[in-house]
């Protein structure tokens, strides 16, 4: 696999790493990384555009591909080589539960009325303030839903090393 990547990547007109594993190593690279896994940019280098997410949202992937094909302009990337149009703002800033964060209304246990009324999930372990993506706006599976809307804390799945950096994810008692 690595051999193929080394051969193909230098000659490719664009390289898109789809998902957190391809971008940053993801779960296989989580401690103790028994298979010595790495993301494409670390394993091979080159002008990689990272589209992390576990999984990568198909709308993000499409947006990047369309951008490359039709606009032919280089996309502006952040320090982790992610397009800033997708990964430029924290989930928290766009979250529909932010009003409740600001009003100090927090979910204290899963499954109660507050969890359905849209109270903030910060106390349950939400990583929205540290995760950068458009999840609350674009949502998933064609705009059906997203993590926080389903009452689940964001686990920061678009961030490098998130398995080790953000664990534990759900802080329930």
């Amino acid at each position: 696999m690595l051999d193929v990547a080394r051969k193909v990547i230098p000659r490719a007109s664009a390289v898109i790493a789809v998902g957190t594993c391809a971008s940053f190593g993801g779960l296989p690279a989580a401690s103790p990384n028994p298979s010595r896994a790495r993301g494409v940019m670390d394993a091979v280098g080159g002008k990689v555009i990272n589209v992390p997410g576990c999984p990568a949202n198909s709308e993000w992937v499409l947006a990047v591909v369309i951008n490359l094909i039709s606009l032919k302009k280089p996309m502006k990337l952040d320090a982790h080589r992610r397009p800033v149009t997708i990964y430029g703002t924290p989930v928290h800033e766009q979250c529909e539960r932010k009003v409740n964060f600001d009003a100090d209304k927090f979910v204290e246990t899963f499954g109660n009325a507050a969890s359905a009324q849209g109270y903030c999930l910060y106390g349950m372990g939400c990583k929205g303030p540290e995760a950068y993506s458009t999840c609350p706006k674009v949502k998933w599976n064609g705009g059906v839903n997203w993590c926080v809307q389903a009452g689940a804390p964001c686990m920061g799945c678009v961030e490098p090393n998130f398995w080790d950096k953000f664990a534990p994810f759900y802080e329930m008692q």
């Binding site: 998933w140 599976n141 839903n145 993590c147 389903a150 009452g151 686990m155 759900y170």
Partner: peptide, 14 residues
């Protein structure tokens, strides 16, 4: 995803 938040990797069944 209607219940799970997203698919794959649903989020709603701790």
């Amino acid at each position: 995803a209607i219940f799970g938040g997203k698919m794959p990797m649903h989020m709603n069944t701790p």
